[in-house]
Design a protein around this nucleic acid. Structure first.
Lengths: 206, 206
DNA sequence: CTGTGTGAAGGCTTTCACAGCC
DNA sequence: GGCTGTGAAAGCCTTCACACAG
């Protein structure tokens, strides 16, 4: 299970496979072929098989994969750090919606706190996560050993806040701000840029 | 300006360049080197130059690029369909947040209507876009010639709704539902899967 | 002398073809 | 016979090296 040897794109697809396997398990299906699983995940069968070989042999020839066993194996590869606490910075429109979004919890993540320049500002109900003042950011990260952060602040503030949380110990950032963050090599950033996704789609519209 | 010859990844980066150029223009900067622009967009200078050659020669050797001219050229390549009306389907937590999100408007998109199974349900203020009943979906798409849709419905409903809107004429979907959509080749889908992005990051956290 | 444009090389992913095991 | 595992081939994208224009 050599982490470094698994391509980034494969890691990404492992999450897709895992989700598909989960659904199969819920439906009481015990065995699945690469063909069927690949279709469910939206990839080609050969791609799926190749992806799995990066961390072992999980199938039975002539039969397929054991849903339970493969699910466990993938979870282990991916899941090392799954119980990590996550913080969210910037409880505006988008940030607040994400705090209420149940999709994170369903996949095993817990947002333990949010931070905002105006922690007391009005937010529609349903947010159970405490919204703290920005001054407490560094102390909180250090105390709880937070390594994962979601950034939903305005683009103008993004770089400065990124610097702060990285100094405090954050190692990975899910960035929603429409800005290119300059970070040290050891820090990983995944950008989710909604406007660019739309712009990209509009290019393909005839 | 052969559309088909420009790689998908280049198209994606063109949006990044465009945004960086916009900021330069706002600051009254007339000329920029590939070095500087690439840094602002978070890519390597050679990559930027190669990307630009897919649709022409825009620089002046020994000097750099004219911010105004390059911005216009990129906008034209990307922007063919920029004034397209966009609809959003599923006005739940995430959907409502996106309706209020100003980032789309800033980049030139307009969400003209939202659709929801419960159009009348309570939503915190600030949503100016009309929220319509799902029954009006097909008629609206046909009438307004809508080709771009944002899907923020539960995973279980995603495929069925995708089928409906594609039949009605939608050509590109920005899908936030954690589901793999099966669509005809002519339809483009960009997935934004928040849980998977987080899972992916957690893999890289030590 | 500076900084772009680009053919060629290199690296990374995907796909193929088929050997190997159940 | 059916389906996985995998080396090899193909394809795609990035990076290099340097010619060339201003």
């Amino acid at each position: 299970m050599q982490k470094a040897d698994i391509p980034r794109k494969t890691i990404y697809r492992l999450s897709l496979y895992n989700r598909a396997l989960q659904r199969l398990r819920e439906n009481g299906i015990a065995t699945v072929s690469s063909e069927a699983l690949a279709t469910a995940a939206g990839v080609k069968p050969t791609q799926l098989r190749k992806d799995l070989t990066y961390f072992g042999q999980w199938g039975t020839r002539g039969l397929g994969y054991n849903v339970e066993a493969l699910g466990k194996a993938i979870t282990e590869v991916l899941g090392v750090a799954k119980l990590q606490p996550v913080i969210l910075i910037g409880a505006g429109q988008l940030g607040t919606a994400l705090l209420r979004y149940s999709g994170f919890a369903r996949e095993g993540f817990e947002v333990v706190a949010a931070f905002d320049a105006e922690p007391g500002r009005m937010r529609a109900g349903g947010v159970r996560v405490p919204v703290l003042s920005m001054e407490k950011l560094e102390a909180f990260i250090a105390e709880r050993g937070v390594k994962l952060a979601i950034l939903t602040v305005p683009a103008t503030a993004a770089q400065e806040i990124a610097n702060r949380i990285i100094s405090a110990g954050v190692q990975a950032i899910l960035n929603f701000a429409p800005a290119v963050l300059q970070v040290p090599d050891r820090v990983v950033v995944n950008n989710v840029d909604l406007a660019i996704e739309l712009e990209n789609l509009s290019y393909f519209v005839k």
